[in-house]
């Protein structure tokens, strides 16, 4: 399901960089994601994967380079506007609204922009009622899709880790994101839970959502991704079908060599 050349990619980064002081966490990365693609971003720890996510969702402005979403230049667009345009993301550390229920967590992502103003409460009661009804329907539908209906009324901070990760994905779904950036959706989960998350990702993909994910679990990458991009020291060093990319001895050395170094120090 890779995109044809004449079709505008849903996401493009052109020579994008992000530096922290003198350290270039992302260094001239150019990627292109076609509509409906499922692409995995892999690489050793500290390769700049999460920084690239932060730049694409604009939580961090890029130091240089260009960011295009559906062909439009969004290099200088605010993160909240980008979210409204259709980019959703999850966080490695989940970042749910911990004191709120799963239902309310998802409702925040289903609310209209106008609900962020005090004026919204002073609108006609009928408009408020209509909007509440719309949000309710969307949230219930989303919970059902992600298999979270039984825990709808549970406070997010008290959910299991796997459920929290599902709520995070469900939030992107409620916001009707066309591109979802999933940061390690399967990390910290057991085999059964991982399979569950993989199924949700595949379901999203078949429903037309484009997915870019960071993942260390290569079984998941092989299972769900059509393509993998290998990032090392902020640079893109390889891009291919996951199996072929992972078979490359050179990249395996970067990846597993790094892991070896890491395990030997701990």
């Amino acid at each position: 399901m890779t995109s044809t050349p004449e079709e505008t990619p849903i996401l493009q980064t052109v020579e994008i960089s992000r530096a922290f002081g003198g350290f270039r966490a992302v260094d001239g990365a150019s990627i292109s994601i076609g509509r409906g693609d499922v692409v995995a971003l892999i690489g050793p720890n500290g390769a700049g994967k999460t920084t690239l996510f932060n730049v694409i969702s604009r939580l961090l402005p890029p130091t240089s380079g260009q960011l295009l979403f559906e062909g439009a230049d969004v290099t200088h667009t605010s993160p909240q506007r980008l979210a409204r345009m259709g980019i959703g993301r999850t966080f490695q550390d989940v970042r749910l609204f911990d004191t709120m229920t799963a239902w309310d967590n998802i409702a925040v992502f289903a609310q209209t922009e106008a609900s962020g103003t005090l004026r919204s409460g002073l609108l006609s009661p009928r408009a408020v009622g209509r909007e509440a009804k719309r949000v309710r329907a969307r949230v219930d539908e989303t919970l059902d899709y992600a298999g979270l209906s039984p825990v709808a009324a549970t406070v997010a901070g008290e959910l299991s880790f796997a459920q929290q990760k599902k709520v995070a994905i469900a939030r992107c779904l409620a916001q009707q994101a066309r591109l979802m950036l999933l940061d390690e959706p399967a990390s910290g989960l057991d085999a059964v839970e991982r399979e569950d998350v993989a199924k949700i990702i595949e379901k999203l993909s078949s429903d037309g959502v484009t997915i870019l994910l960071v993942e260390h679990n290569m079984d998941i990458v092989r299972e769900v991704a059509h393509r993998a991009i290998f990032l090392a020291e902020g640079k893109i060093v390889g891009e291919d079908a996951p199996d072929r990319l992972l078979a490359s001895s050179e990249l395996a050395e970067i990846y597993f060599g790094h892991l070896r170094a890491e395990t030997s120090t701990t």
Binding site: S57, L59, P79, Q80, R81, A83, R84, G88, R89, F91, R95, L96, F97, D98, T99, M100, V108, F109, Q111, E113, G116, R171, Q175
Partner: peptide
């Protein structure tokens, strides 16, 4: 609870 997550919700 999580201001950065609220940004990604579009607010």
């Amino acid at each position: 609870d999580a201001p950065s997550a609220l940004l990604t919700a579009g607010f």
